[in-house]
Write a protein that binds this DNA or RNA. Structure first.
Lengths: 242, 242
DNA sequence: CGCCCACTTGAGGAATGTCAATCTCCGTGG
DNA sequence: CCACGGAGATTGACATTCCTCAAGTGGGCG
């Protein structure tokens, strides 16, 4: 009993580009099933081949890579609507691991059908490139953050980015949004130690700029937070959903 | 008097996938011209629209992003065969700037022809996704480096990656390869200060592990360098050339 | 010759990491 | 019902890495 694409709850959100009838039909045929996993499940392992591609229907997770010595870098946070496994799909093996932070429902596609998509649906192929390019652009921003911003700037940047992504998905309620990650996840995403991340969050809390506790992020002073984050305002565009 | 694709010197290199006759013909038609620039020329500016996509025929450069406060993050180094402008091509505006470090010759394509590629050449479209995914994978590795490795590890990692890329392009001569960048460029790529980068290079030099001077990189003890870099050996695959 | 740029080196300070202890919340087993 | 243990958050003290400032070197070029 899986969700049909035409009833997909994500489609209704206005952060995604509308589907044409034809795209809808194709995507429905492309979809091979659904996967529901518990919190903590590893969906994809770095270096492994996976037969599937996924679109996240609900739930949140992280992409990460691990160094031999155990240090972990969170590549980014995965939210509903994100497409997972494109790298593994085209390059053979996954470049990073993916883990569910909350229970998650994923829409699955067969890797072997990917070629059919390129052959018959140039529009969808274009969307894939768009997604890949846009992921790349985001990674570039993360690299700037980790490479050039200091602690307070990094943490502010991350909270703001996460809040905005959640907000565009319609998951925010005013200036509050659910954020079920651990401080360790954010620390690993920013290249900071857990302790330092914790203390930096404490600064934001005591200055009444942002508060994050019990899985909820609360933006108290967006202006100041943006100031700390050294963020250039950027326009939001609708993105394709696969 | 431009180079015809069928005579393209890059095609001969065995790090690239072979072209079919059909691909060759299409690519020739896709190519709109050539661009030669001096060292120091900015080819693409962050945030601007560009009407062109490029493949680097010869020369080296850097992709970078700049923060309001002037700090610069080098996203990566651009070598012959690299494809530039895909992000700008599909997303409208460039996410980073591109600057030529040496004199450069670029093969140009019209952005407006991109759609034609998707319509008529699913194989080339697939190659584009492959390239985008592979760029993304590399950025992920860079993020791990900047986020989790320390100074000596970062510098070792960067030298090794650069050497291997050059080597696969056939630009290395034994354990030497041309590396015309400034220390500042590497520092900005690794999120380290110029001074610290310089001192770290000094350590590698005094330990007789790697030497980089006068635009030439010399790997003296690859084993040790890999040890410092915390690198997991990875297999090299042929990549598509556009 | 003199200037500019890249590289080099030293010294001191700031940012961040590491270690360790504590606290709270929660679920489990006795 | 309570003791226990584990996970995550918090805090303090100290160690280390890395940054900034500053000065000096050497080569290329007008």
């Amino acid at each position: 009993m899986t969700v049909e694409c035409k009833n997909c709850p994500l489609r209704k959100k206005d952060c995604f580009l509308p589907f044409s009838q034809q795209e809808l039909a194709f995507t429905q045929g492309f979809k091979s099933g659904e996967l529901s996993v518990d919190a903590g499940t590893t969906i994809q392992i770095e270096g492994s081949e996976t037969p599937h591609l996924y679109t996240i229907l609900s739930g949140m997770g992280v992409r990460y890579k691990t160094l031999e010595n155990g240090r972990r870098q969170v590549i980014n946070f995965i939210l509903p609507g994100d497409f997972v496994g494109l790298q593994a799909g085209v390059m053979g093996e996954a470049a990073h691991s993916v883990e569910a932070t909350t229970p998650m429902v994923l829409c699955t596609f067969r890797r072997s059908d990917l070629w059919r998509l390129f052959q018959n649906h140039p529009g969808r192929a274009y969307d894939l490139v768009w997604l890949a390019a846009s992921e790349e652009a985001f990674l570039g921003q993360s690299l700037v953050t980790v490479g050039q911003r200091k602690g307070l700037e990094r943490v502010s940047w991350a909270l703001l980015k996460l809040f905005d992504r959640l907000s565009h998905l319609g998951l925010a309620n005013g200036n509050r949004a659910p954020l079920p990650y651990r401080q360790q996840d954010v620390a690993d995403a920013l290249g900071l130690s857990l302790v330092h991340t914790n203390k930096t969050l404490g600064v934001l809390r005591s200055r009444r700029v942002a508060k994050w506790s019990e899985g909820e992020l609360h933006i108290l002073d967006r202006e100041k937070l943006q100031g700390y984050a050294l963020i250039e305002e950027e326009d939001v565009v609708q993105r394709p959903l696969i």
